[in-house]
């Protein structure tokens, strides 16, 4: 897997596709914290939402980083289509790690908050950032050219799903009681955002649930995506 990640890193860095999402994220975070002071966890809920969108953009470009002919060659050398595809998802997630660290440490180290953030808050916030980025990555992979041929359709569909992920609570309120369980089918980004807005009052169980829900949801999406692609292999190209 390290060899695959190293190869994907060479391809991604040299493609310069990382430039726009990384620049927008770094610029956005520094811009937002230009006004001080800020509440700690509420600010992190914003940067998690921001990282969720940026991670989706990174995954969207990463899944199609190779030309179809090269993808066939990589698959034969790596010996497994599941491994190469999972490698792309894993690489996308690892790529968001420094972004998550920046989002957590920059405001804490440069006194952008209204108080000093505790170590437990910083650690949990980093984990929430990573859970949010994993969710964004596993959602966006479904809209790569492997499953949706038209770039316009895939971009618009992904944008819609991202908007829906931010609107789960309002949508739930509008749904009749019999359809309310459908909420569990929607991306659980809202779990993290709502929790961070009421972090002081939240129980440990709810804090852990807000962390586990996007990770589990993302992992299920990832498993289904890999199963589907393994069945089709390179037929989609």
């Amino acid at each position: 897997m390290i060899a695959l990640l190293s190869y994907l890193h060479s391809c991604y860095i040299r493609s310069y596709r990382f430039g726009p999402p990384v620049f927008i994220f770094l610029f956005g975070i520094t811009f937002i914290y230009m006004v001080v002071p800020n509440p700690v966890m509420e600010s992190y809920s914003f940067s998690i939402s921001f990282l969720f969108v940026i991670s989706a953009a990174i995954s969207y470009s990463m899944m199609d980083i190779e030309a179809p002919s090269q993808e066939a060659v990589t698959m034969l050398h790596a010996g497994s289509f599941i491994r190469t595809t999972f490698g792309k998802l894993l690489y996308s997630w690892l790529f968001t790690l420094p972004l998550a660290l920046f989002a957590v440490l920059y405001p804490a180290l440069f006194n952008k908050f209204d108080r000093v953030a505790g170590l437990d808050e910083l650690t949990l916030s980093l984990l929430y950032h990573l859970a949010g980025s994993w969710l964004g990555i596993t959602l966006a992979c479904w809209f790569s050219s492997k499953l949706v041929r038209s770039r316009t359709t895939s971009f618009l569909s992904l944008s819609l799903v991202i908007v829906v992920a931010f609107c789960v609570s309002p949508l739930e309120k509008e749904l009749p009681d019999s359809l309310k369980p459908l909420k569990w089918l929607l991306p659980p980004l809202d779990e993290i955002i709502q929790l961070l807005f009421h972090f002081e009052d939240a129980t440990l169980a709810s804090k852990l649930l807000a962390l586990a829900a996007p990770l589990l949801y993302g992992t299920i999406l990832c498993a289904l995506f890999l199963m589907l692609l393994n069945k089709r292999r390179l037929d989609s190209l």
């Binding site: 060899a3 695959l4 190293s6 190869y7 060479s10 391809c11 040299r14 493609s15 190779e66 030309a67 002919s69 090269q70 066939a72 060659v73 990589t74 034969l76 050398h77 790596a78 010996g79």
Partner: peptide, 25 residues
């Protein structure tokens, strides 16, 4: 061994490319 009808022009040298493919194998 599979050689597709064309190879993409990657931003790496042939040595780097073959090293990556060899390490994958």
């Amino acid at each position: 061994g599979y050689a597709p009808d064309h190879l993409a022009r990657l931003r790496m040298t042939s040595t780097e490319y073959l090293t990556h493919m060899g390490r994958l194998s």
